[in-house]
Amino acid sequence: MPEGPAPALVAEQFDDIIQQRDAASFGMWIFLATEILFFGGLFASYALYRSLYPAAFAAGSHLLKVAYGASYTVMLICSSLTMAMAVRSAQLGRRKPLIGFLVLTLLLGAAFVIIKLRWEWYGDYLEHLVPGVSFAPQGEALEVIRRFGAPLSHVALFMIFYFVMTGIHALHMVVGVGLLTFLIIMAYRGRFVSGDFNTVEMVGLYWHFVDIVWIFLFPLLYLIGGRY
C-alpha cells in the first residue's frame, strides 16, 4: 500500500493525504447540500404561507426587534471571519493564532445562542408571543397586528415559522459550538498544525454555512413589510 507524506495521518483506505483531504472536503460539501434541502423544506413552507398571508407575515415581523436580528448578523459575520482566519492559521502551521481565533469564534457563537435564548426568546415568552405555548398578543403587539388587519391565527403561523427556523438554526449553532470546543482541545494538544488542518477546514465550512442560513433568516423574518 503506497504511503502518503504523513503516513500516521492517512487512513488506510486512502492512498495519500491529498486523496483523503479531497474526499473529506467533497463529503462535507455534499453534507452541506443535504443541509440546504433540510432547511429548504422550511423555506418552501415559509414561502407558501408568506405568499398567502402577506399582511400577517408583515405584522408578525413587526413583533420582532430589528436590533436583535441585526446584531446577530454582525456577530455571525465576525465569527465567520475569525473562523476563516483560524483555518488559515492551521494551514500555515501557527498554533497560537489558531487557538486564539477558534476561541474568538466560539465566544461569538456562544454569545449568539445565549442572547437568543435568554433575552430574545424569553422576552417573546413574556409577551405571550409563542404559539402552542402561550400565544395571546397584548398591548402594543396587538395594536401592530390590528394595524395590519391580520387574523391572529395567521400571525401565529408566522411566529411558529420564526421559532422553528431560528430554533433549528440555533441548534446548528450549538452543534457548532460543541465542534469548536473539540477543535480547541485538540489544537491545544498540538493537532492541526502539521498538514492535518483538514478537520478545522471541515468545521469551518459548516460554520460558514450556518452563517449563510442566518443571512437569509435575518431579512426574511426581521425585515418584512417595510419599517417606515
Partner: peptide, 19 residues
C-alpha cells in the same frame, strides 16, 4: 433531508397544535 424536516413539522404540529 426534506422528509426529515417534514417529520419535524409533523411532530411539532402534533405537540403544539399551531396550525
Amino acid at each position: 433531508p426534506v422528509i426529515a424536516i417534514t417529520m419535524v413539522l409533523i411532530m411539532l404540529e402534533r405537540i403544539f397544535h399551531v396550525g
